[in-house]
């Protein structure tokens, strides 16, 4: 049949001779008689109106396209494993200590290298390093999660308003200029020295200075959607500002919000590490940065003090960033089937 058709098509233009299927042939192919074939059939309007129906669900598609990226899935698994292990590692399963304060310094174990008792060795005053590293990991990740989520939440709300309400543009732009023109680390130093070095202060101040970057990128995206006709339609239908922002604009930005989150968490860990390293953080509750800071005087002779926390910091930030990036790609409906 196929070859026959091709032959027909070739014949058509070249010789202007038009071949036709013979009646026998047609009957053989279709299994209907000539009279049947060449009679009118009833018109079916539903058939003409039919569209390809798909059971499209946004989140299902997001998940599906994320799972397609094997490397990202691996990254996510590594990140979760590290995070979950930070709980197991300091539980009675792996350690004899039940609280950070139980760690005792001992002169004999000073700078002990990793062995069967001290899995990660001991630090400069002979405390178990295993417990410290995992305790700090858990702490850092939780802090980063709080700051990341807080910062993105504030940033998204502010960014939507900034982008959509024209009157607010001026004010927000000035705030942005003020925050942007001075490095965050200087604000952080000032706050640590003037108000305090506790984690709470740090969380709040990190959120207070970083939301503006998320807000700015959200604002630029809102511009793309602000004047689309469907927003005008919503306004004609009496939609309030909140409805337009949450129903008409936010859904388009989900992938960006996720990306900001994925960027923000490793960034916060980075900040925390830097601050601790600079000595701007409380010593009572160790975070990974503190351990790095403590190790800086000794790591030439005792590299295990640096290697363990540094490896974990890198592992967490890199895996989370890659997984988050892939997830944000997956959340973009243009990448859905």
């Amino acid at each position: 049949m196929k070859s026959k058709q091709r032959a027909l098509a070739e014949g058509q233009e070249q010789d202007a001779v038009i071949l036709r299927y013979s009646t026998e042939e047609l009957e053989a192919v279709t299994g209907a008689s000539e009279a049947e074939l060449f009679s009118f059939v009833e018109y079916q309007p539903e058939e003409a109106e039919r569209v390809g129906h798909s059971e499209y669900s946004y989140w299902k598609s997001v998940w599906k396209s994320f799972l397609k990226k094997k490397s990202a899935v691996v990254m996510l698994i590594i990140f979760l494993t590290v995070f979950v292990f930070s709980f197991i590692a300091i539980s009675p399963l792996c350690t004899k200590y039940s609280h950070y304060s139980e760690l005792k310094s001992s002169r004999s174990n000073k700078f002990a290298t990793p062995d069967s008792e001290y899995w990660f060795g001991a630090d400069n005053i002979g405390r178990d390093y295993w417990y410290q590293v995992w305790y700090a990991t858990r702490h850092s990740v939780m802090l980063a999660a709080i700051v990341g989520v807080g910062e993105v939440l504030v940033g998204v709300v502010m960014g939507l308003l900034w982008g959509y309400v024209r009157k607010l543009d001026r004010i927000f732009t000035e705030i942005y200029n003020i925050i942007y023109s001075v490095p965050t680390i200087i604000y952080m130093t000032l706050i640590a020295l003037m108000i305090g070095k506790t984690f709470l202060v740090m969380c709040v101040s990190l959120i207070a200075f970083n939301w503006i970057y998320t807000a700015k990128s959200i604002r630029n995206l809102v511009f793309m959607y602000r004047d689309r006709e469907y927003n005008l339609a919503s306004r004609c239908l009496g939609a309030k500002l909140g409805t337009i922002l949450t129903k008409n604009i936010l859904p388009y930005l989900i992938s960006v919000v996720i990306l900001r989150m994925a960027l923000s968490i490793p960034q916060t860990i980075g900040y925390e590490t830097t601050l601790a390293y600079l000595g701007l953080l409380d010593v009572k509750e160790p975070a990974l940065g503190l351990l790095l800071r403590n190790s800086r005087e000794h790591f030439i002779n005792y590299p295990h003090l640096l290697i363990f926390p540094a490896a974990i910091v890198s592992l967490i930030t890199v895996t989370f960033y890659l997984a988050g990036n892939a997830f944000s790609d997956a959340a973009d409906p243009r990448n859905h089937v």
């Binding site: 058709q5 027909l8 098509a9 058509q12 038009i18 071949l19 036709r20 299927y21 047609l26 192919v29 279709t30 209907a32 049947e36 074939l37 060449f38 009679s39 009118f40 059939v41 018109y43 079916q44 058939e47 003409a48 039919r50």
Partner: peptide, 16 residues
Amino acid sequence: PRNRRAMAIDFKVDPP
């Protein structure tokens, strides 16, 4: 499918 006066053969064989 959109032709109000389609014949049965229209649904079965691509016309030459």
